[in-house]
Design a protein around this nucleic acid. Sequence first.
DNA 1: CGTGTCTTTGATAATCTTCAACACTCGTGG
DNA 2: CCACGAGTGTTGAAGATTATCAAAGACACG
Lengths: 240, 240
Amino acid sequence: MSPTTIKVACSNCNLRELCMPIGLSDEDLARLDEVITSRRKVRRKTALFRNGEKFHALYAIRTGVFKTCVTAEDGRDQVTGFQMAGEIVGLDGIVNDHHTCDAVALEDAEVCVLPFDRIGELSREVGALQHHLHRVMSREIVREHGVMLLLGTMRAEERLAAFLLNLVQRLQARGFSRSELVLRMTRQEIGSYLGLKLETVSRTFSRFAEENMIEVHQRHVRIVDVDRLRGLLAQPGTGF
Amino acid sequence: MSPTTIKVACSNCNLRELCMPIGLSDEDLARLDEVITSRRKVRRKTALFRNGEKFHALYAIRTGVFKTCVTAEDGRDQVTGFQMAGEIVGLDGIVNDHHTCDAVALEDAEVCVLPFDRIGELSREVGALQHHLHRVMSREIVREHGVMLLLGTMRAEERLAAFLLNLVQRLQARGFSRSELVLRMTRQEIGSYLGLKLETVSRTFSRFAEENMIEVHQRHVRIVDVDRLRGLLAQPGTGF
DNA sequence: CGTGTCTTTGATAATCTTCAACACTCGTGG
DNA sequence: CCACGAGTGTTGAAGATTATCAAAGACACG
């Protein structure tokens, strides 16, 4: 629960390019190092923050995968995203000074704590940081537009194909294979994210495997035919 | 197309409370007035900006209602939101310096042009403005979480009820009736936003009317029984 | 080595979409 | 001023997709 106060350095972090603005001077990076002074470990299935908690900081993921989910009054919940190394969580908390969703680690994880008031101060002086922060938030808005398109217009097969392709793409950007991946989330969680029931997710996996587009062994997935998967998205259509 | 360069003043705008940070000093407001120097009229069915266009500015809506929509490669599109007076559009453009969605006026409209670089500069000096900008972006993220919950977990009746209740609530905040509203968008557009076909929207309207929860005359809607509408959302459930 | 969680698969049911026909509204031009 | 037509909205019947319910299998963890 309590942040581990370890001295760490952005200037020395191998995730810098994913996480932080490129083009910060050494001097600026040094100042950033003074703001980001603690990390926090989050154990599997525990929350980094929860709906209703006071907002203090953004979190940059160092290791591990998180899910964020919102909950309706009646208890239904919706996974709004899966986040991995280099990505930022906690942006939801800014508007009302309280978090409005849960961020839960899907495996043991570690995050850098970015105290928001201090980030704000520093970004007033470091233009590149200010713009970077704006871009991070804008990117999240654009990502969610994509999810809305998925939820609003796509069918089960398209949703799952889009999900898998998005995952491998992000993993590839982190140096992992572009054809093999290990799912850190359950079928239920995938389903929640994609607006499907877990049975539908499972069936769709099976169908993809049957048609030799992927191989599935539990949470291990190998993408055998990327092109056919992609083909499920861009209908060779007359343009609707 | 070309912005109308009229001298206008935020300090004198009746939308200030919706649109701009409360708690700006008179001095700060004066500086803001120097940044926001032009308005732009947008005629019904024309775009304020389009997917792919270079990003220059955010826009604060003065009058009229807009829709924003994203388009997939295959031509399917998804309305991502309806925006009205006091709300900000264009945040999607920050991340890649290009817009990724269309903003189209549903009726003749007018917006204030907020040149983004100048807003950035000013917000470096005016802390309240900086924080306000962050809040605006965070609010949009949280709003989209709500839409994802709607698209991912709700059925047609719940979606439409949520949509209507959200609309009247925002209209009420702008001084309009809390029971009567005029829809500026077609059934098709409502359907796109809610992830439904226009026929389903129409049928659901009819069902609500049949059960005396609302009265519908074309785009005119009167909410007769708010409580029953709300009841459609919060299932009196066991709260699993 | 059992227990609980997660996953798969089948049969049935509910919801929404699709296709089709017709009604209504509003603006335009004869 | 009226008629016409395009766009919009309503409604019905049939069909498709996904959800629900149920049962059994696989795996992971203690």
